[in-house]
Write a protein that binds this DNA or RNA. Structure first.
Lengths: 151, 151
DNA sequence: TTAAAAATTGTTATATTATAACATTAAAGT
DNA sequence: ACTTTAATGTTATAATATAACAATTTTTAA
């Protein structure tokens, strides 16, 4: 599904961008938060919270559910990570500096997910909700299906 | 949020349409399934599985979690009910004979949800996924925010 | 019409996902 | 340095959902 050539590069660039964003905004990118973000970025398959927990236990931490969920809360709030509600899993944001018209393609065969953006989509959605005089706060748009490589 | 004038009528028409659909398709609309659908339609606030369970217990059933989840599975498969993944709740489908370009507006104040359709939306989404050579199987589109009455 | 097969429901147990509440430690502000 | 705030540790539990097998009901078909 993905165009990522060298995933090590992919991870490192995500980590350093996260570092910058936190610095710019005076947010504390602690070791725990870093490690959780890195674990999420380990693959393009969205990570489950309890899988992250198991991996954390293998490291220095005395990790328990709140350990992971608190780190996830931080990463979600800062926009470094997205939660995919349709599969209860977490994926690193591929462009954490701007979030416009994002949606997710999730392959039910290889389990990889890809974040996409489409201005036309945003426009269509805005048009639709304006008709309903609705003030949107959060949009969830996830497409489950088969990616090009898997079909 | 809703234009429903008389909710009794709203419920009864949903129930009788469900009855018809099941009959047409040779599906068994058992008492249990009927009751669960009716409980979901009790309000336009999406129903939580365990709330349905509690209400069922007040009736004739010896209800346990699988009782509810199996009825929900049936109703979801037949398209009589939708699951809202962003809030883990279930809502009656307002037009179960055709599902095209549906999405949901969910008010975080009054908790009501409204099913909407927008062909432009469907088109924009299809355009977007075609670019990615992705074969969609299920689309989740939910907008959390404030409805007209609540803002 | 009755036996076999299939579908539905009952029941017990457990898996999965997530948060509350309070204690402790570390960092930042004054 | 001391106070406050933020982050993490820890225990317990809440909320959501499914597995596995037994009993029953409905349908099929001999």
């Amino acid at each position: 599904m993905l165009d990522c050539q060298d995933h090590e590069v992919c991870i490192e660039s995500a980590m350093s961008e996260a570092e910058s964003i936190c610095q710019e905004n005076g947010l504390r990118f602690t070791e725990l938060r870093k490690e959780v973000l890195r674990l999420i970025w380990l693959s393009h398959v969205p990570a489950k919270a309890y899988d992250i927990l198991e991996k954390l236990k293998g490291k220095a931490w005395s990790a328990k559910p709140p350990t992971v969920y608190r780190a996830l809360d931080f990463l979600l709030e800062t926009g470094l990570v997205h939660k995919l509600d349709s599969i209860n899993a977490y994926i690193g944001c591929s462009h954490p500096r701007e979030h416009n018209g994002c949606y997710f393609l999730i392959c039910t065969d290889c389990n990889e997910a890809k974040e996409c953006c489409s201005p036309e989509l945003t426009d269509a959605i805005e048009l639709a909700w304006n008709k309903n005089s609705f003030r949107p706060q959060k949009v969830t748009l996830e497409v489950l299906g088969q990616c090009g490589e898997c079909e």
